[in-house]
């Protein structure tokens, strides 16, 4: 199918883009990489009136360290995340997740800002943002505000961004030496949306978990923190009995629904298996090696 008729505007600055958004009487959409938006338009699931191309706004680019955080500009492509030495050393969880995102050609075009703004509950980056409680930078053309990831993902494809606000950057905390992370997902084929996936980050004092954040994706309308499982593991040394308790606690954390391919019960079971396996991998973090 071909996309419906739509107008196009190439913005040169954020204020330029927001002005175009505000002056549009119909449905205006920001276009960055377009890897989800254009696919939906080609199915006529989305028929916006105006596309505002923000891909040429320089202010939305760049990966840099700012104090204890790494600021990743919204237009940073998945492939750049994969190959960035800064991200590899300071945001290893994001680096570990990146190879799981779709296929090489999608990673060459898709952007982190687009991925997080689109808030697909089956996507990897929103889950990583939530696990690290990244700060989401939102720009309305006049001012910039920040929303923590845990307050950002509200519902299916719904975020705390106001209409017209542009997700301009994502700020990830720099990993500390005592921090370990792991990422994995179960997908039928390489690059598919996961049946279930998990991102885990934990701070250790020696063998003991001080603090742990566990986020599942593809299990609900947003990425989901497993708070009860986190509580079960905090202060433990992640021995088998601790992990079993966390697996049991998971039933209170996740409430996936049935879909046409996978039942809620299967998803729950797979989430539990994935949790145990990934916790077992925590002490020795092994980000997936990838050629990029």
């Amino acid at each position: 199918m071909k996309a419906g008729d739509v107008a196009y505007f190439r913005a040169q600055s954020v204020s330029d883009a927001v002005a175009a958004f505000r002056s549009c009487e119909g449905d205006a959409r920001y276009l960055a990489g377009g890897q989800s938006l254009l696919a939906a338009m080609n199915l006529r699931l989305l028929t916006p009136d105006l596309l505002i191309d923000i891909a040429h706004i320089d202010a939305l680019r760049g990966i840099e360290r700012r104090g204890g955080e790494i600021r990743i500009g919204a237009l940073t492509r998945h492939a750049e995340i994969l190959s960035s030495p800064i991200i590899a050393s300071h945001v290893p969880l994001l680096a570990a997740a990146a190879p799981w995102v779709a296929h090489p050609a999608i990673r060459n075009k898709g952007t982190i800002g687009g991925s997080i703004a689109f808030a697909d509950p089956a996507s990897e980056f929103p889950a990583v943002a939530l696990a690290l409680n990244a700060r989401i930078e939102l720009d309305n053309g006049d001012s910039v505000r920040f929303v923590e990831a845990q307050d950002f993902f509200l519902d299916l494809y719904e975020t705390a961004a106001e209409p017209g606000e542009i997700l301009s950057a994502v700020w990830f905390p720099v990993a500390t030496p005592d921090q370990r992370c792991t990422f994995d997902e179960l997908a039928r084929r390489r690059g598919d949306y996961a049946i279930v996936g998990v991102a885990i980050v934990a701070d250790f004092s020696g063998e003991i978990v001080d603090r742990i954040r566990i986020v599942f994706f593809s299990v609900g309308s947003t990425p989901v923190r497993a708070l009860r499982a986190e509580a079960a593991l905090t202060g433990t040394a992640l021995v088998d009995t601790d992990i079993e308790l966390a697996q049991q606690a998971l039933a209170g954390d996740l409430s996936p629904s049935d879909d046409v391919q996978v039942s809620a019960a299967t998803r729950m079971h797979l989430a539990s298996v994935l949790l145990r396996r990934q916790l077992g991998k925590l002490p020795v973090p092994t980000p997936k090696a990838v050629r990029a």
Partner: peptide, 21 residues
Amino acid sequence: NDAGQLMNGSMADYLVPMAGE
């Protein structure tokens, strides 16, 4: 489904074998 509607009529949902598998 029971209403005769195809639930996985796209290449993202209908899984063909790819090189990796």
